[in-house]
């Protein structure tokens, strides 16, 4: 956040720093950036899971009661079963609580979660792109400094 707020004056601020300080700043920004990117990735996987759950609900709504099916006990062992209830689903809302919901309610839950995750995802992407531009500016200044400190005798 601090980098985002100072990114306007970042060039002037950064120009005053020494090469070592610049390297430290760059490392810090890079670390923050990688944390942000990890968060973006995990939000994406979470949103995918909810999308999969929503499509599973969709499939379930197409089935009728009494439908024969195979229930997976392990990846390779299935037992026959009968679909007994296609109207209600149990939703895991976190911290060990489960809520019985009807199919449309369950779908609504998934949609709400997906929207929530999308909003957070967009915010994170914005912050990450700000960080990335800050990192680029810092590395530009760093390169310029290194060049000017490497070749002062030739000029």
């Amino acid at each position: 956040m601090a980098a985002a707020s100072r990114s306007g004056g970042v060039v002037q601020e950064v120009a005053k720093l020494s090469v070592e300080q610049l390297q430290a700043v760059k490392e810090q920004i890079d670390a923050e950036l990688s944390v942000l990117q990890d968060s973006v990735g995990s939000i994406r996987t979470a949103a995918n899971r909810f999308e999969m759950a929503a499509s599973a609900l969709n499939n379930l709504s197409l089935q009728k009661e009494g439908q024969q099916m195979l229930v997976p006990l392990t990846a390779s062992l299935y037992v026959p079963g009968v679909l007994e209830n296609v109207d209600n689903v149990l939703v895991d809302v976190g911290t060990g609580y489960f809520i019985e919901k009807s199919l449309p309610e369950g779908k609504d839950y998934c949609d709400r979660k997906i929207n929530f995750l999308k909003a957070n995802h967009d915010k994170l992407v914005e912050v990450a792109s700000e960080k990335r531009s800050a990192a680029e500016q810092v590395s530009l200044v760093l390169q310029a400094k290194m060049r000017s400190s490497a070749a002062p005798s030739e000029q």
Binding site: F98, E100, Y109
Partner: peptide, 25 residues
């Protein structure tokens, strides 16, 4: 944990009085 609990609270607030709630023990 705080965030997770708040999410659960929001969900519980949205429910009808006769909704079935289960706890995983």
């Amino acid at each position: 944990q705080h965030g997770e609990n708040e999410m659960v609270q929001k969900e519980l607030e949205l429910l009808d009085d006769e909704a079935n709630v289960f706890k995983l023990i």
